[in-house]
Amino acid sequence: MALNIAVCIKSVPDPKWYEKITIDTKTKTITRKGIPSIINPVDKNALEAALKLKEQYGGKVTVLCMAPPGAKNELYEAMAMGADEAALLSDLAFAGADTLATSYTLAQGLNKLGKFDLVLTGTESADGATAQVPAQLAEWLNIPHLWNVKEFVLATEQEIHAKVKMDDAVGEYVIQLPALLAVSREINKPRYTTAMGVMKARKKTLTNLSKHDLDVNESLIGQVGSPTWSGDISIPSLARKGQELIGTPEEIVTQLIAKLRAAGIREGRGMVNDASGNLGSGRTDG
């Protein structure tokens, strides 16, 4: 059976550069000037999972991204990794979307591109990290979904068996196709892009889709279609007035043990409760 697979990716500022992010206190906007954009890391795991399925069962892998026009670089990278084609949803009317409006727009994009057996995404984005788009996209598409999938197999032509990461546990599920799976980073190791892949990508199709190309209800896209909106933003200061312990390793360790004792540590017995009240900014509420 050949599988028609869609992978939704997000273009995000490279997490290695987060220290450089500043906010403009006057306009209350985030300044990310000069910070390069990359494919959201875990979305590459979703793409890798799609490419593996295609290798095994045949079919087609389409990558979709909603972003400003510059994100075509990320889509070409996805095609260099092996995706067959790509589509970029780009329109000023899509801007300012929260997760509900974003997932609606992605759903309309997917509906435009075809009928997919499987939609794959990463669990969450590195920047916003709400992890909400996968579930909401599945709702708009009216297909079942699983989130935080660490392993899955196609059990039959209509069913996937999946292992889902829970809190200190793993859940096992069966899900009917067509379905959406949001995969976690331990599912696989994304392949590297090769020079050959980059060359092939140039010959592949990248479709640009604006709101006019889609069957969208304008009250559901962009800022207008977003139930949530952003108020004030701030960069919290977490600085502590630290004390440096200096000397030879032996001297440092002696001082450190004294500090730990003062903080209530008794070796092998954990904390001694009555000594713990005099700690700086810690919790006091048990």
Binding site: D98, T99, L100, S103, T130, A131, Q132, V133, P134, A135, Q136, A138, E139, W140, H145, W147, N148, V164, K165, M166, D167, A169, S226, P227, T228
Partner: peptide
């Protein structure tokens, strides 16, 4: 893990913000 999936699913079903 469950709540992180439950909440957005519910939000989309109710067409509201999360």
């Amino acid at each position: 893990a469950a709540g992180s999936d439950f909440a957005p699913t519910l939000g989309a079903k109710l067409r509201t913000g999360v």
